[in-house]
Lab assay of single mutants.
Amino acid sequence: EIRVRVEKDPELGFSISGGVGGRGNPFRPDDDGIFVTRVQPEGPASKLLQPGDKIIQANGYSFINIEHGQAVSLLKTFQNTVELIIVREV
């Protein structure tokens, strides 16, 4: 597990896919977790996150067994800083 802090400027600078009942993700199709799919170059998350990172927690909210829409809404709700716990396959 890796813990990262992303400062919104003005957005977080990454996209996610997956989630329960979602269209899945390109990295682990059998896993309904939330995965980072795109990281904006030079964006707030560019040095912190990589495509394929699985987000398991954001600001204390579990991202395990969460629906895609709910994950997106939560990330939009947070002000300024988001603390993520991620799992990265090496």
Score class of each variant (00 low, 15 high):
residue 13 G to W: 03
residue 73 S to V: 06
residue 90 V to T: 08
residue 5 R to E: 11
residue 15 S to T: 13
residue 21 G to A: 11
residue 60 G to P: 03
residue 57 Q to P: 01
residue 32 D to L: 08
residue 30 D to G: 13
residue 53 D to G: 01
residue 79 Q to V: 13
residue 82 V to W: 00
residue 80 N to L: 08
residue 65 N to G: 11
residue 71 A to L: 01
residue 26 P to R: 10
residue 81 T to Q: 13
residue 23 R to G: 14
residue 56 I to N: 09
residue 17 S to L: 09
residue 29 P to S: 14
residue 41 P to A: 08
residue 51 P to M: 08
residue 78 F to H: 05
residue 44 P to S: 09
residue 3 R to S: 09
residue 81 T to W: 09
residue 68 H to V: 09
residue 38 R to E: 15
residue 53 D to S: 01
residue 59 N to D: 05
residue 37 T to W: 10
residue 7 E to V: 13
residue 20 V to R: 11
residue 53 D to M: 01
residue 74 L to C: 06
residue 81 T to C: 13
residue 30 D to R: 11
residue 88 R to C: 00
residue 45 A to P: 04
residue 49 L to Y: 04
residue 63 F to I: 01
residue 82 V to M: 06
residue 77 T to H: 13
residue 8 K to C: 09
residue 9 D to F: 05
residue 43 G to C: 12
residue 9 D to H: 11
residue 31 D to N: 06
residue 39 V to M: 03
residue 41 P to E: 15
residue 26 P to T: 08
residue 79 Q to D: 13
residue 50 Q to S: 10
residue 86 I to N: 03
residue 89 E to I: 11
residue 25 N to G: 08
residue 85 I to C: 09
residue 78 F to Y: 07
residue 43 G to Y: 05
residue 72 V to K: 13
residue 77 T to S: 14
residue 46 S to P: 03
residue 84 L to N: 01
residue 53 D to A: 02
residue 46 S to W: 10
residue 66 I to Y: 03
residue 2 I to N: 02
residue 44 P to W: 01
residue 50 Q to R: 12
residue 81 T to M: 10
residue 3 R to P: 04
residue 38 R to N: 15
residue 83 E to G: 02
residue 81 T to Y: 14
residue 87 V to T: 14
residue 44 P to N: 15
residue 15 S to L: 09
residue 55 I to S: 00
residue 53 D to T: 01
residue 15 S to A: 12
residue 37 T to P: 00
residue 38 R to W: 14
residue 41 P to H: 09
residue 63 F to Y: 04
residue 77 T to R: 11
residue 87 V to P: 02
residue 73 S to P: 03
residue 6 V to S: 01
residue 66 I to D: 00
residue 56 I to C: 06
residue 88 R to V: 00
residue 55 I to E: 00
residue 70 Q to A: 14
residue 52 G to L: 04
residue 64 I to C: 14
residue 34 I to M: 04
residue 61 Y to G: 01
residue 75 L to N: 00
residue 62 S to N: 10
residue 74 L to S: 04
residue 33 G to C: 06
residue 47 K to A: 11
residue 23 R to F: 15
residue 14 F to L: 03
residue 77 T to V: 07
residue 51 P to D: 07
residue 9 D to Q: 09
residue 84 L to Q: 03
residue 17 S to D: 09
residue 71 A to K: 03
residue 40 Q to K: 12
residue 62 S to P: 10
residue 10 P to F: 05
residue 27 F to M: 09
residue 28 R to H: 13
residue 64 I to S: 12
residue 44 P to H: 09
residue 60 G to L: 04
residue 83 E to L: 03
residue 21 G to K: 15
residue 52 G to I: 00
residue 61 Y to A: 08
residue 71 A to D: 01
residue 22 G to C: 09
residue 22 G to I: 07
residue 5 R to A: 10
residue 62 S to Q: 08
residue 51 P to R: 12
residue 30 D to N: 12
residue 6 V to D: 01
residue 52 G to V: 01
residue 74 L to D: 03
residue 82 V to N: 00
residue 64 I to H: 11
residue 31 D to C: 06
residue 52 G to P: 00
residue 85 I to H: 14
residue 38 R to F: 14
residue 53 D to W: 03
residue 46 S to N: 09
residue 59 N to G: 12
residue 76 K to A: 13
residue 72 V to D: 11
residue 76 K to T: 12
residue 84 L to A: 02
residue 62 S to V: 04
residue 18 G to T: 04
residue 6 V to P: 02
residue 30 D to M: 10
residue 32 D to F: 07
residue 57 Q to N: 14
residue 28 R to Q: 15
residue 12 L to T: 04
residue 43 G to R: 07
residue 79 Q to C: 11
residue 30 D to Q: 15
residue 20 V to M: 08
residue 24 G to A: 13
residue 80 N to Y: 12
residue 35 F to W: 12
residue 23 R to Y: 07
residue 11 E to L: 07
residue 76 K to G: 11
residue 26 P to F: 07
residue 50 Q to N: 12
residue 15 S to I: 08
residue 38 R to Q: 15
residue 54 K to Y: 03
residue 63 F to M: 09
residue 17 S to W: 05
residue 15 S to Q: 14
residue 21 G to E: 13
residue 8 K to I: 12
residue 55 I to K: 02
residue 43 G to P: 02
residue 81 T to F: 11
residue 68 H to R: 10
residue 85 I to F: 08
residue 2 I to A: 01
residue 3 R to F: 15
residue 35 F to N: 00
residue 89 E to A: 12
residue 17 S to T: 12
residue 77 T to C: 10
residue 26 P to L: 10
residue 17 S to A: 12
residue 9 D to P: 03
residue 57 Q to C: 13
residue 6 V to L: 13
residue 59 N to M: 04
residue 80 N to K: 15
residue 61 Y to L: 12
residue 75 L to D: 01
residue 62 S to W: 03
residue 76 K to C: 12
residue 27 F to E: 10
residue 43 G to T: 09
residue 13 G to Q: 04
residue 44 P to M: 08
residue 19 G to L: 03
residue 40 Q to E: 14
residue 4 V to L: 07
residue 58 A to L: 02
residue 61 Y to P: 02
residue 53 D to N: 00
residue 25 N to E: 07
residue 57 Q to Y: 09
residue 74 L to E: 04
residue 85 I to Q: 12
residue 87 V to N: 15
residue 75 L to G: 00
residue 22 G to D: 08
residue 24 G to P: 11
residue 64 I to E: 15
residue 28 R to N: 15
residue 18 G to M: 02
residue 67 E to A: 12
residue 85 I to D: 14
residue 10 P to I: 04
residue 78 F to G: 09
residue 37 T to G: 08
residue 17 S to H: 05
residue 63 F to L: 07
residue 60 G to H: 07
residue 73 S to C: 07
residue 28 R to K: 15
residue 2 I to D: 02
residue 66 I to G: 02
residue 62 S to H: 05
residue 89 E to R: 07
residue 34 I to H: 00
residue 2 I to T: 05
residue 58 A to W: 02
residue 16 I to G: 00
residue 58 A to D: 03
residue 66 I to N: 01
residue 19 G to E: 04
residue 22 G to S: 13
residue 16 I to D: 00
residue 18 G to L: 02
residue 44 P to A: 10
residue 68 H to Q: 11
residue 68 H to M: 11
residue 60 G to A: 08
residue 89 E to H: 07
residue 24 G to W: 06
residue 58 A to C: 11
residue 50 Q to W: 13
residue 45 A to R: 02
residue 37 T to A: 11
residue 40 Q to F: 15
residue 5 R to N: 13
residue 24 G to I: 14
residue 26 P to E: 11
residue 67 E to W: 07
residue 41 P to L: 06
residue 33 G to E: 01
residue 54 K to R: 10
residue 47 K to R: 09
residue 32 D to I: 06
residue 83 E to K: 04
residue 19 G to C: 03
residue 61 Y to D: 05
residue 32 D to W: 07
residue 11 E to D: 11
residue 71 A to E: 01
residue 19 G to R: 05
residue 51 P to V: 09
residue 39 V to P: 02
residue 73 S to W: 10
residue 34 I to W: 00
residue 47 K to V: 08
residue 3 R to E: 05
residue 51 P to C: 10
residue 62 S to R: 06
residue 55 I to C: 02
residue 51 P to W: 05
residue 52 G to H: 04
residue 47 K to G: 13
residue 79 Q to R: 09
residue 68 H to E: 14
residue 75 L to W: 04
residue 64 I to G: 07
residue 13 G to Y: 03
residue 68 H to I: 09
residue 73 S to F: 11
residue 83 E to C: 05
residue 40 Q to P: 05
residue 85 I to M: 12
residue 30 D to Y: 08
residue 12 L to W: 08
residue 23 R to E: 10
residue 79 Q to M: 11
residue 40 Q to L: 14
residue 62 S to I: 04
residue 82 V to S: 02
residue 41 P to Q: 11
residue 15 S to Y: 07
residue 57 Q to I: 05
residue 78 F to D: 06
residue 74 L to W: 06
residue 79 Q to P: 13
residue 11 E to H: 07
residue 25 N to H: 07
residue 60 G to K: 07
residue 42 E to C: 14
residue 34 I to A: 01
residue 22 G to R: 10
residue 88 R to N: 05
residue 74 L to I: 13
residue 80 N to G: 12
residue 80 N to T: 13
residue 90 V to Y: 09
residue 87 V to D: 13
residue 17 S to M: 06
residue 31 D to H: 05
residue 12 L to Y: 09
residue 83 E to F: 04
residue 61 Y to H: 15
residue 37 T to M: 08
residue 28 R to D: 13
residue 46 S to I: 14
residue 58 A to Q: 00
residue 69 G to W: 13
residue 22 G to L: 07
residue 35 F to D: 01
residue 68 H to K: 08
residue 88 R to Q: 00
residue 43 G to K: 11
residue 20 V to F: 10
residue 36 V to N: 04
residue 4 V to C: 05
residue 71 A to V: 03
residue 35 F to H: 04
residue 24 G to Q: 11
residue 26 P to H: 07
residue 10 P to E: 05
